[in-house]
Design a protein around this nucleic acid. Sequence first.
DNA 1: CGGGGATTTGACACATATCAAGAGCGGTGG
DNA 2: CCACCGCTCTTGATATGTGTCAAATCCCCG
Lengths: 276, 276
Amino acid sequence: MHYPSSRLWENPVTKVSPIDLVARLQRPARTRAGGVVIELEKQRSASDPGYVCPASGLALIDMAWIEELTYVRRRVKRGDALFLANDQFASIYALRNGFFKTVQGLEDGREQVTGFQMSGEIMGMDGIDTGRYGSTALALEDSDVCVLPYALVANHSNRNDELQRQFHKVMSREIVREHGVMMLLGTMNAGERLAMFLLDLSRRFSARGYSASDFVLRMSRGDIGSYLAMKLETVSRAFTSLHNLGIVHVDGRHVQILDFADLERHRGQTSRRDRD
Amino acid sequence: MHYPSSRLWENPVTKVSPIDLVARLQRPARTRAGGVVIELEKQRSASDPGYVCPASGLALIDMAWIEELTYVRRRVKRGDALFLANDQFASIYALRNGFFKTVQGLEDGREQVTGFQMSGEIMGMDGIDTGRYGSTALALEDSDVCVLPYALVANHSNRNDELQRQFHKVMSREIVREHGVMMLLGTMNAGERLAMFLLDLSRRFSARGYSASDFVLRMSRGDIGSYLAMKLETVSRAFTSLHNLGIVHVDGRHVQILDFADLERHRGQTSRRDRD
DNA sequence: CGGGGATTTGACACATATCAAGAGCGGTGG
DNA sequence: CCACCGCTCTTGATATGTGTCAAATCCCCG
């Protein structure tokens, strides 16, 4: 699979080009605490506030710490990649505004959506281990991202217990989320999976001040299916089923949850009779 | 589900009881850097080396850092729990010797194995976010575990870049692993899943100096099925299939991989004809 | 040596995949 | 403004992989 990447050529907010940044961060043979990062910090504290990623949209998610660390922002257009699987890892990314999916590929070409990210959520942590990203992050709508150079995060969290804690929590949360997905894929049928998916989206929209019961999906049926491990036709049928039961109103990508209690209940037992 | 827990009553290696340890770690209203942890460190540097977890068995896995942080070791008998889902989080655990599974539960009682851990691997990181473990860790054989109080890990990694990096890597690795499992569950059929599973085990045994091609499974067909999201009967049939194809020799829990190339290939396409 | 869980195997059911066709819908250009 | 294209989505008919239920055997552990 080949996606257009916004990687090295788009840098509307900062004066320092990402290329320089990456080059500096990767400059070898200097202790992290000593040279490189401090140098970056000096730049960061220069008088131009433009490259500081305002945390406004993120406050709800308890991520003021991101503000401290943002070195540069990046805009990613719908359909473009923030990073590609196998790219050299240098930064994690906090989504400030917009919507992403992360996609993981197999050698033989099969691929799967491993997550959807919305504002305040972090991408790229799967790159820390091997030094290369394990997945590709694709914008599902025009988005605005805070670039958090990993070296900076690491360095700051040495001296800021709260930041360290937040960072650990973010990674832990990702582990917990993935446990949940494994659970979903391992123990639930199609109807339950979709119900869980909608409830999860609802909760996350709600946490950001949007309606919990009325929202527009940013992803296609195929993406949902890939994430939930079912074919797009099955996703469509499951939507139709929920719609016919009067639990949600579905019109294309516009979803209205009509009965949360039923949807919650659905998330526990569904079977053939529901479709009739 | 109710499992016997080794939690508060088993502490054969250290002089400080886990109860005291936990109590101290949880003592509120003291900065982490200041009071509590330093206090622990003093104890740790006392003349009794017994409570330091020798890193011997872990060296291969690049985890010498664990040695520095181990405050106490714990023995967990087969079938007992190291920690239970919903237990108050205080420590992560490095498996020194033995074999574990981690199990996640749904409110309605359904549960799933989310991972198998062998020596050198870390458990409990899913507790950092919420302060409670998200899963239960059950010993599949008598095991020996290094207890790494989270406060200690956090404190040390403030002052030790390498340790910080290792810790981040371990969490990242867990995220990557879970992406892999999602992939497995989302895109592969039963035969492929089992092939992947066996190759994964093989690799991990091999990394610990055991045979890559001849090993004894510590877990039941049911556990494997739970992990791979298939019924135990299906696991059994998939084993039989691999056996009949001459790719692996299976005798109960004793597995010998006869043809790695075929097994790798199997991990890419399997279908009905393989069973005939 | 006995008992009970673990495993295997078979027959059948069912949830979901697959294949196929058509409908909706937004964008584009004549 | 309409026609057309390409996409996504829906719906139907059928195929199939895996689940379910059941029974027999194995074998581990007390």
